[in-house]
Nucleic acid binder design. Sequence first.
DNA 1: CGCATTGCTGCAAACGATTGCAGTATTGGC
DNA 2: GCCAATACTGCAATCGTTTGCAGCAATGCG
Lengths: 352, 352
Amino acid sequence: MSVTLKDVALAARVSISTASRALGGSGLTSERTQQRLTRIARELGYRPNPIARGLKTGQSRLVGLLVHNLANASFQVMAEVVQARLKALGYQMLLCIAGDDPQLESDTLTTLADHRVDGLIVVPTGKNGARLTALANEIPIVCLVRRDDGTDLETVLADDSEGAYVGTRYLIELGHRRIGIIVGRPDTTSGRERLSGYVRALREASIQVDDALIHAGHFEPETGAASCRKLLDLAEPPSAIFVANHEATLGVLRVIAERGLSIPDDLSLLCYEHSPWFEWHRPAISIVDNGASDLANLAVDRLLHRMDAKGNGADGVREYRVGARLVKRDSCRPFDPSPRKSSATKSSRAKA
Amino acid sequence: MSVTLKDVALAARVSISTASRALGGSGLTSERTQQRLTRIARELGYRPNPIARGLKTGQSRLVGLLVHNLANASFQVMAEVVQARLKALGYQMLLCIAGDDPQLESDTLTTLADHRVDGLIVVPTGKNGARLTALANEIPIVCLVRRDDGTDLETVLADDSEGAYVGTRYLIELGHRRIGIIVGRPDTTSGRERLSGYVRALREASIQVDDALIHAGHFEPETGAASCRKLLDLAEPPSAIFVANHEATLGVLRVIAERGLSIPDDLSLLCYEHSPWFEWHRPAISIVDNGASDLANLAVDRLLHRMDAKGNGADGVREYRVGARLVKRDSCRPFDPSPRKSSATKSSRAKA
DNA sequence: CGCATTGCTGCAAACGATTGCAGTATTGGC
DNA sequence: GCCAATACTGCAATCGTTTGCAGCAATGCG
């Protein structure tokens, strides 16, 4: 096949071990041989075989990243960040996509473990806590974005409660009183926390929480569309909608367009998470940015830390929070109390 | 560490080689020992160490996928398809992201080769042909989506010329005569081919090709926006725009919104490649689908074929084409010859 | 009953690197 | 000039598997 250490050693007329030591920079060889071997290795195009090395050292230089999908922009940037960071450190990323399916997650975890990854970053479904805990005895693991309640693994989370709070407060400050929210399933941490942030902001402003304005559901455009319709059909429809569930946004936008409503004139819209087309959409959509790249970076940091401090299982902190950031664009405007009912009108395109 | 073959052999009171043969399903062991060993292995939780196996067999069971980014929806689905297909075959995908940067591509290629991947699917930048050719002697490689002119590696391409032809003809059939096109850089195969399909369709319909209607540039929203502005500012602006460059679409949509133009009433819009929000956008945007998942599937097929038929370098076909598909939605309508100039009007929302 | 065939099984050598231990120059001190 | 210390270098074992070859029992045939 390719050039092995043996070939280099042969060419340099030294033993394999000397060659290994010289190239490995162990400092146990003379300056001269080291330089000579480096030169010869380069000339021959020698590149160490990580498989053989791995067998001896017990490391694969591979790190697994397990996400739900790639359609979600947050996962995209996380994947890109993780791959870039790891690459710089000589690791390679093994990217796996397990949907939101616990069975598939479990299988994939097995595959990853089989491949002897040196570390693992997982966005858990939440249904494989025991499995993850068991695996954590073999491999350093860090959970990302979601908490798996079945385990106490180190977890890097977005501060969803704070994010939703900040977003809701922004809308309140603009004068909105009836604020609809479309949020993720209550059996996910993010769903629960975003909802709690919303409620907290309302309470703080002494606004009555109206259950009719709260819609929780799966992460799909269809669900978002359905929720949006219900909100708009209310006798007293909201003047602002906070779509705190990224995937639902597409559906919401469609319904708004269908009804001929104009943003932000007829309705203020605030969304969650970053997506390239939120910026380019007209009007540009204001968002609460959950800081996907910060999350990914922190997860890598923590994983690296764990991989270094091998073995010492318990080191205090088990949960890290990354702050959310409000990005104001053009989809929210101060509440205008002039009577305007649901989808009836669609006037006012005049530039103010 | 974990359970090794030795442990299994010891527990079963057979030699390591017998254990290996029994579990490997070589058919060289008696039915009885085979079953016994399988049972014991399961009980002990034995899982073969791919690193050790790899060292012996020279295989890593890893396949590299090198793409430009993950923001492009086509790359997303390709990554998902490749990972799913490979997983089913016991391979794992090593996903690398090298932007459109030849240097980074070259580095990444090295990393991938170092990790001894069993195969490689590459979306080439086009600047590392020699490198790829050299690498192909060691590793089966299939190029995807783009052709690298510096090499004659097997390549799976979208039929971009056909796609652009079909799209353009569709617009012509709707009665459009002045059709603007925004297309990729002419130094990429896709850029050239899409343009050629456009020109072919026009010629076929005996429509004069007007260079002012053709904009080629980098794959970025900004470029798209700039091109779109120029098109709309023409003395005789187009009645339809074909954005045959996926990344540019965001910019185009923004400019259209900024000018208060309505699609498809004021302008027909046809885009290239699939993206989830094209469907959910109102009006839903018609596209020419390049068949990303077909492309990925075919690339995997070809790669597997190469990996089987190891060594025999030259087998006739070197280029595979995957047909494009026109997906009609709501962003194109028949040409209305009534005089309507640029951004002046924005009437007509009445449901037809 | 003897011998060749068949069917399993075990021994041992790989695969390509790392590393503890022992051996050999080289140097300096006395 | 001799010996100890120092500085390299080489031998060989090892990581967990696979696999060619040889050994050995059981079987069938004459």
